[in-house]
Write a protein that binds this DNA or RNA. Structure first.
Lengths: 153, 153
DNA sequence: CTAAATAGGACTAAACTAGTCCTCTTTAAA
DNA sequence: TTTAAAGAGGACTAGTTTAGTCCTATTTAG
């Protein structure tokens, strides 16, 4: 597993549409038509994204949504935060840790370190990067060893 | 979200116990007592880990489990694969993609690139690394920019 | 032979997710 | 000033997933 929710995935598709069609306002209905995602779902997504200030909304006739800032200033982490809640790889890396086995746990900090690293990587990936069909594959390092990235399976 | 399941988290705790207590066989009951995780759950975890050849099992009285190989040769990705199924950040990055909106999707490859990168990072983190309470925080790079890792929120 | 241990899988309850729908508010235009 | 197009906010439901338990079979040391 270790996956983002389908809504977050759809969210990036919706944002991608707004970023491409950067002329201005697009209504939820327009986005739904363009992306093939059901209107109530698009509407829900855009409302969440507006609340997170990733898009701005305009009410009334001819209203709609548009990106609140440049696509390069919107990170994958922003989108995940808005739609899936904060990234935390384990329950105990979330703030309200009430872990039953904490007293016996010898691995807590390790997952948290991984979490910070993934988090940071997602912070650095912008919507603009997501839009580029081709481009550099992210590179990771661990413990000082550079790692070249290839598809493995 | 973007989190591993609680079972996988517990799995690392169980493996940590086996790695620390490297004298040899430990029964599921012993591990349960040492970790504070309920016996049926520990048992289930160890069965899955045995199937994935991360631990070896010995039946009969005085039987139990032990690591199948050195803790440095067991990666976080191995554990996640065994307990959570293969890592794939979105549904369509899994092999059996049957995405309804594929025709409209402009972001597919991007998540897959992120997925590969996270996957690769998890491949490089060993159980031995997880056990070190302190140690280097993983570093990531994206698009050639080195990123220093700090706790951000 | 017996008992300690794992193997395998069925099953249930709880939690979470996705998706829909309803009512209210805002606002442009007739 | 009225109307209708749009978003805001939230309640609700169905479906899926996950966690956890339990039962029966198999293996094997003593």
């Amino acid at each position: 597993m270790l996956r983002i929710s389908r809504l977050t995935d759809y969210g990036t598709v919706v944002l991608a549409h707004l970023a491409r069609d950067h002329a201005g306002l697009a209504s939820a209905a327009e986005v739904a038509a363009a992306t093939g995602i059901a209107l109530p779902t698009v509407s829900k997504l855009l409302k969440s994204l507006a609340k997170a200030e990733i898009v701005t909304s305009t009410r009334g006739p001819h209203g709609g949504y548009q990106l609140a800032r440049d696509a390069r200033s919107i990170s994958a982490a922003d989108v995940i935060d808005a739609l899936d809640g904060p990234v935390s790889i384990t329950e105990c890396s979330a703030s309200d840790s009430n872990c039953d086995i904490e007293a016996h746990c010898h691995v807590g900090s390790a997952w948290q370190r991984i979490n910070v690293a993934i988090r940071r990587a997602l912070d650095e990936i912008s919507l603009a990067d997501l839009l580029r069909a081709t481009g550099p594959v992210p590179r990771f390092e661990f413990a000082g060893l550079p790692i070249t990235v290839e598809v493995k399976r």
